[in-house]
Deep mutational scan, measured.
Amino acid sequence: PDDLEKRARELLKRGKNPDEIREYLRNAGYDQSQAEEALKRAL
């Protein structure tokens, strides 16, 4: 898994919901489609 996916998994483990994770990834400078893909793979 790429770093983005790892980060998404990490956040899920900490109890973040998908919307929070999307926002976090966007704020971290990733584009929307990258964030969506990583989140899908992590779920």
Rank of each mutant, 00 (worst) to 15 (best):
E37Y: 05
E37F: 03
P18W: 09
Y30T: 03
E10K: 04
E36A: 05
L43T: 06
A42E: 01
E36R: 03
E37P: 03
R41Q: 07
L12K: 03
A28S: 08
D2P: 09
R41V: 06
G15I: 02
R7W: 15
R14Y: 09
Y24I: 15
K16N: 07
D31N: 13
G15V: 01
E10I: 07
P18S: 06
Y30M: 08
L39I: 14
R7E: 11
A35Q: 04
Q34T: 11
Q32A: 14
E20N: 03
D19R: 07
L11E: 03
N17I: 05
L43P: 01
A42K: 01
P18E: 09
E37M: 07
L25V: 01
P18V: 11
P1R: 11
D19E: 11
L4Q: 03
N17H: 13
L39G: 00
D19P: 03
E5Y: 15
A42L: 14
I21R: 00
R26L: 14
A35D: 01
K16F: 15
L12I: 08
G29F: 02
K16C: 12
D31W: 03
L39S: 01
E37H: 07
L12R: 03
K6P: 03
S33P: 08
L43V: 07
L39E: 00
K16R: 09
A42R: 01
L12V: 07
I21G: 00
L4N: 02
R14L: 15
R14Q: 15
N27P: 00
R41T: 06
P18T: 06
S33I: 14
E10P: 00
L25I: 04
K13N: 11
E36G: 03
Y30L: 09
D19L: 06
K13Q: 12
R41H: 07
A35T: 13
A28K: 08
D19T: 08
D31I: 05
R41N: 08
Y30N: 02
K6I: 11
G29W: 01
G29H: 02
L43D: 03
K16V: 13
N17L: 12
E36C: 08
A28L: 15
E5G: 07
L43F: 07
E23L: 06
E23K: 06
L4D: 02
L39C: 03
E20M: 05
E37T: 08
Y24C: 08
I21Q: 00
K40A: 13
E10M: 07
D19M: 08
L4Y: 05
D2I: 12
A28G: 06
A38R: 01
Q32K: 10
K40G: 08
E36W: 04
E36I: 05
L11T: 00
L25R: 00
E10W: 07
K13R: 14
Q34L: 13
R26G: 04
R26P: 00
R14I: 13
N27E: 12
S33M: 14
A35F: 10
A38E: 02
K16I: 11
R22K: 09
K13M: 12
P1A: 13
I21M: 02
K16M: 15
A8M: 11
E23S: 06
R26S: 07
A35I: 15
E5F: 15
L25F: 15
R9F: 06
R9W: 07
R7D: 06
E36D: 11
N17Y: 06
D31F: 04
N27F: 08
E5N: 08
A28P: 01
A35C: 10
E10D: 11
Q34M: 13
R14V: 10
L12M: 06
R22H: 05
Y30F: 12
N27R: 13
N17W: 05
A42M: 13
D2K: 09
E20A: 06
A38N: 01
E36P: 01
A38S: 04
D2L: 12
I21C: 01
S33E: 15
R7M: 15
E23H: 06
A35R: 03
L4I: 12
Q32Y: 12
A38Q: 02
E20D: 06
L43C: 09
P1L: 15
N27C: 10
E5D: 10
L43K: 04
D2H: 11
P18M: 09
N27V: 10
K16G: 05
R22I: 15
L25M: 10
L25P: 00
L43Y: 07
R9D: 03
P18Y: 09
N17G: 10
R22W: 08
Y30H: 05
L4C: 11
P18F: 10
K16L: 15
G15H: 03
K13S: 11
R14W: 09
A38P: 01
P1K: 11
K13L: 13
E36H: 04
G15N: 03
R26N: 05
E37G: 06
D2G: 11
K13W: 07
L11Y: 05
A35G: 03
R14T: 11
R14D: 12
R26M: 15
A38I: 12
E37C: 09
L4G: 07
A38C: 10
G29Y: 02
L11F: 05
E23T: 06
E23N: 07
A35S: 08
R7V: 15
A38V: 09
R9V: 08
D19V: 06
A28V: 06
A38H: 02
A8D: 00
S33Y: 14
L12D: 00
A8S: 03
D3W: 14
Y24T: 08
I21H: 00
E37L: 08
D3Y: 13
D3T: 10
D2E: 12
N27G: 09
N17Q: 10
D19H: 08
R14G: 11
R41Y: 05
N27Y: 07
E20I: 03
R41F: 04
S33C: 11
L25A: 02
D19N: 10
G29I: 01
L39T: 03
G29K: 02
L25Q: 00
K40D: 09
I21T: 02
P1C: 13
A28D: 05
K40Y: 13
Y24Q: 06
L11R: 01
A8P: 00
R26V: 14
K16W: 15
Q32M: 15
Y30A: 12
E36F: 04
G29R: 02
N17M: 10
E20H: 04
E20Y: 10
A42N: 02
P1Q: 12
K40L: 13
D2S: 12
L12C: 04
G15L: 03
Q32S: 13
D3L: 09
A28I: 10
G15Y: 03
A42G: 02
E10F: 04
E36T: 05
R41P: 01
R14P: 00
S33H: 14
A38W: 09
R9Q: 07
N27H: 10
Q32N: 11
D31T: 15
G15E: 01
L11A: 04
E23P: 00
R22D: 01
L12Y: 05
E23Y: 04
N27S: 11
I21K: 00
K16A: 13
K6F: 13
Q32L: 13
L39A: 02
I21N: 00
G29C: 03
R22T: 07
A42S: 03
K13E: 09
D2A: 12
K40E: 12
A38Y: 04
L43S: 05
L25W: 05
Q34P: 03
K16D: 05
L12G: 01
L4F: 05
A28N: 08
E23V: 06
D31M: 06
L11M: 14
R9T: 08
S33W: 14
N27L: 14
R41E: 04
L43I: 09
G15W: 03
L25K: 00
A38K: 01
P18Q: 08
L4R: 03
K40C: 12
E5L: 15
R9C: 08
A38T: 06
L4E: 02
R9P: 00
R9H: 07
Y24V: 11
Y24A: 11
L39Q: 01
L39N: 00
E23F: 05
A42T: 04
R26H: 08
E5W: 15
K13G: 10
A35Y: 12
D31Y: 03
S33K: 14
K16Q: 08
L11H: 02
P1D: 12
A8Q: 00
R26T: 10
E37S: 08
Q34K: 10
D2Q: 11
I21S: 00
S33D: 14
K6Q: 13
G29T: 02
Y24R: 03
L25T: 00
K6L: 13
E5H: 12
G15R: 02
K16H: 13
R9M: 09
L4V: 10
I21D: 00
R26Q: 09
L25D: 00
A8W: 04
L43H: 04
R7A: 14
P1G: 11
N27M: 14
E23D: 10
N17P: 06
A28F: 08
Y30P: 01
E10S: 06
Y24S: 06
K6A: 14
E10G: 05
P1W: 14
R22M: 15
D2Y: 10
N17A: 11
A38D: 01
E10C: 13
L12S: 02
D19W: 08
R26A: 10
K13A: 14
R7P: 02
R22E: 04
Y24H: 08
